[in-house]
Design a binder for these strands. Structure first.
Lengths: 164, 164
DNA sequence: AGTACTCGGATATCCTGTGTCCGAGTCAAG
DNA sequence: CTTGACTCGGACACAGGATATCCGAGTACT
């Protein structure tokens, strides 16, 4: 039971992207978080494939959120990066072995799969209830209202006069 | 986001162990489910280390449930096999980079970690609400009241007169 | 038109499961 | 009491996927 590490990066990127208007290159996002640019690029590609962010190429290219922050759930991001397949996969071992249940009796999935599926649904529901906008609002409450805009300004700063 | 495959095996073993009185060797459980005996042994060792099953050695040895089925939750089994560490681990990347939040301001964990933690808690709560006894009852409802006792009898059958 | 910067996918590397094996210990039988 | 055989337990290879990286295709600015 382990979640891909890139999920954290992708979530942070989505939050900071709420504070910008112009596209932000993956390399700049990597510089902000001090992580490997190549690997973060991979995560952004996943977000792009899922349609969560729009990618624009060229000299002033980068990534922008496609939808409004209130319309992107945490679950969307997690599934885009980590995949949508459920954590538990039933192998139907009840049908195997000498006393295996005959297939015609297996109309519904076994109780174990049902319970695990319910837990998975609860997890997904909890993630679906939170949006990127909620996260941004929480950051505002934790670090003050000027924190996020400051990061946004830094991300969109002209390459000519960057302090770093 | 992937759950160890051995979790399914361990759960099925716990359920069938509710139907027996004498210890059952790992090899016999493997034969029942038609899976690798060596690997299933590994899972049973994990259950033993967690104190969920009691292991007895010697010629008539094997595994028995330590507690009553109503007192063993699904979460106990999952954590025993797959580990108790949460799926999401916060790397505190908000403290890194040029605009990193100073450590003295990080009194509470970041909003992302909170949301992921809440989802993890929901998942665990859902698993903790189901016991092995509940699963056994569901099997009874699905496959009839005689299914589980039949398996129990097969598991405890004397090695001399085993049909298989 | 040239140029420099961007994304995108194809490519190595490492690490956590996955699967297997043999030895220490123990109980039952003779 | 001796013998024997069967059990668990931990130590040992193997593999697949996540991690990390690089270079080519395309595009907007100069």
């Amino acid at each position: 039971m382990k979640l891909s590490g890139g999920v954290e990066w992708a979530l942070h990127c989505c939050v900071v992207l709420t504070a910008v208007g112009d596209p932000v290159p993956a390399a700049r996002l990597a510089a902000l978080h001090d992580v490997s640019p190549s690997y973060l690029a991979k995560q952004m590609q996943a977000l792009s494939r899922a349609g969560l962010v729009h990618s624009v190429q060229g000299k002033t290219g980068g990534y922008v959120l496609t939808r409004k922050p209130e319309e992107v759930s945490l679950l969307d991001v997690v599934q885009a990066v980590d995949g949508a397949s459920p954590a538990f996969v039933c192998t139907e071992i009840r049908q195997r072995g000498p006393l295996g249940t005959p297939p015609e009796q297996c109309t519904k999935q076994c109780p174990i799969a049902r319970a695990m599926g319910a837990a998975d649904a609860a997890w997904r529901a909890s993630l679906a209830a939170v949006t990127i906008a909620d996260l941004a609002a929480s950051v505002e409450g934790d670090s003050g209202p000027e924190a996020l805009p400051r990061i946004g300004a830094w991300l969109n700063a002209d390459p000519g006069d960057r302090p770093y």
